[in-house]
Nucleic acid binder design. Structure first.
Lengths: 204, 204
DNA sequence: AATTTGAGTGTACATGTGTACGCTATAATA
DNA sequence: TATTATAGCGTACACATGTACACTCAAATT
């Protein structure tokens, strides 16, 4: 099944994916890419595109999956750092900011398609973020001995804040980014403290 | 200066703006609108568009301004309700959710252009949200006797949470929206409580 | 009353788009 | 070895787009 042919096909499929990812930028969203442009960048004739994806949408959803994968790598990295000790909140924010810096366009993809014009795209991005949030929710529940409800509310709020900070980080200079990180950390502390203080009340 | 001619011009300018707003939807973003479509919807020949805007971008920025105006009306409404007494947080969330329900497409515009491909658009949206946030910051500072720093951090976090909830509200059924509103309220309480608890530490 | 201005029109063109179709060359299969 | 399947190509087409240009005609100005 993994003959020369299938292998080559997989390779040019990757070329298409990479071509699309490569064209994303601050000034260029996925929906502004044309099938022809992507094919050209991948060194393919326009019509050959269809051998791999039936649609630009299909390519796009693949990219979102790809982005989700990157996001999960990010989580793994954060967990590793946390295990070595240190402030969970600070490590999370710093790790996320590093992610933005080296994966700006992938993050932009998620950010844009989250509120894009395709319900399927929105659902796909939503799913990736939910996954991200659920992991954090589990962690908070065990580490901080919180109700499932409170832990999930906190996780949700924290992810929202961090994602928003990431979006802002995309448009500012590196110098200001440190300031933004500090503000974000403080906001996460507010949330953590509030959740902890109010968890009793929610329970009772 | 307000002759018959200038009046008519103002009127068709409005028609263009309304045509553009009218074409926005869950499936249609501003950047996916074409000059020709908008002109047609406004009952104009394509080339007449240029008598009013040099560009689709110029129209778009006008729409963002328009959206900002709507946002400020929202704030005024919320303030009025708050003055009549009741939970500030609850009133704010409920008012905002009402806004989403009747101005979905305007909110979508802000949401999308906030992370769009035009730096100018992003800046414009950012400005409107900042204005929104600053008002809340002022309010928190006086009402809750917080440091400027803590109040602004809280305001920023709160606006982020509420906007994100608004975005989620766009894609769910009315029934689930009540649940979302409750979750949002709880999250804002976390933030408020955390800010209040930790304000001493930040000061010292 | 004579002239100028400018909002709105219709035509026209170059350019980019998605994709249908028929072809080639070669790996996979029989 | 003969046959089939298929990745990739080039051509071709219909269509939508932005906008340049020359026009009209009524309001505004002189």
């Amino acid at each position: 099944m993994t003959g020369v042919r299938a292998l080559q096909k997989e390779k040019t499929r990757r070329q298409l994916i990479d071509a699309a990812l490569g064209q994303l930028s601050a000034e260029r969203s996925f929906s502004s890419l044309s099938l022809r442009e992507v094919a050209k960048e991948a060194g393919l004739a326009p019509t050959s595109f269809y051998r791999h994806f039936s649609d630009m949408d299909e390519l796009g959803l693949t990219l979102v999956d790809e982005a989700g994968l990157t996001l999960r790598q990010l989580m793994r990295q954060a967990r590793q750092r946390i295990e070595k000790g240190g402030s969970v909140i600070q490590i999370s924010v710093v790790t996320f900011m590093e992610f933005i810096e080296s994966n700006g366009n992938i993050f932009r993809l998620l950010l844009r398609e989250r509120s894009g014009t395709s319900a399927e795209f929105r659902a796909a991005v939503s799913r990736e973020i939910r996954y991200f949030t659920l992991e954090l929710c589990d962690y908070l529940q065990h580490a901080n001995k919180l109700t499932a409800e409170v832990a999930c509310l906190q996780a949700n709020a924290a992810v929202t804040i961090v994602f928003n900070a990431g979006a802002e980080a995309l448009d500012i200079e590196k110098k200001e980014r440190e300031q933004l990180a500090q503000a974000t950390i403080q906001q996460l502390r507010f949330i953590a403290r509030g959740a902890s203080e109010l968890s009793a009340r929610v329970k009772g």
